[in-house]
Nucleic acid binder design. Sequence first.
DNA 1: AAGAGTGGCAACCGCGCAAAT
DNA 2: GATTTGCGCGGTTGCCACTCT
Length: 320
Amino acid sequence: MRKPEQCGKNNNNKLRKGLWSPEEDEKLMNYIINNGQGCWSDVARNASLQRCGKSCRLRWINYLRPDLRRGAFSPQEEELIIHLHSLLGNRWSQIAARLPGRTDNEIKNFWNSTIKKRLKNTNISTTTTSDSPKVYNPQSHELNKDHNNMGGFISTQHNQHAGFMPIFTSSLSSTMQTTMINTMNIEGLPVLDHGLNMQVDGGYFNGTGQCFEDNNKGFYLENDGIFGSVNNIGIEGDMFVPHLESVNTINSIDHNNHHRVENITCKRETNNNSTNFDDNKRSENRVGVGNLFQEELTIGEWDLEELMKDVSYFPFLDFS
DNA sequence: AAGAGTGGCAACCGCGCAAAT
DNA sequence: GATTTGCGCGGTTGCCACTCT
């Protein structure tokens, strides 16, 4: 077994600990901007920082990263966190992956300091155990045990085909609909399919990307800012959820907040079905994940809790 | 005004995992 | 195959600012 990195316990105790000074921040920032991240222990050494690599990494990820979103959590983000936590438990990094600009540490702190207490005070029960993920029902604010209503989603005849996500009933607020839309769009879960052009007031780019084709311009991530509007998501059937890794391929942002996606690759890890997202392959993405949608499933058969038991359907969810 | 209590947040710690050697 | 290295994660700690008494 390796020895854990001993921050501050080696190098004759020369390594600094504790709060970062503005000078240290500047050094680290300048170094990474000029040289990229690379190996963190090299970063610490080459940037002339008396810090361990681990500390540098943490500082960068939680504070210096330019794509970080500062400020208080919005109510929508809070809803999303609560819902994701009900699904994922204390997997803060996975939750953070669905909240662009937020760090796992930030979400964890927010949960422990604010949400936990609020839920306790309002007597809302959520699961915190990762080994038994349950469904959070926003309508009742209770864990949903009804297998037939998809954990707050009401199924309709309209979507009883493979690959369909249930349509929301009007009883849900648009905010909640938005939240639910996006939390359901986490990678590997079924996404909207043919004939379901959605228009929601107050969309949210969930970090996994809602990609659509803009004629010959290629594929874009629609992101009008957090909880901006997402209109007419995609051409029929073109909505898909790329692997989270793909999000990292976004390498430029234009002034319309349309994020160009370069060389997006959709990986289907569970079945080794690595899929380049081109016209020839798009039908595969529509088909679904693994074998889940290769058969005609009715909504009644699409039992979320049941699906959760089989992690093979959810390549991004690790309930082991 | 001052001390105690509390909350929020940044950072550290220890562990597990995967890749490299 | 064993060991080393580096990274990432979740849990925890400690500092600081604010509020309360």
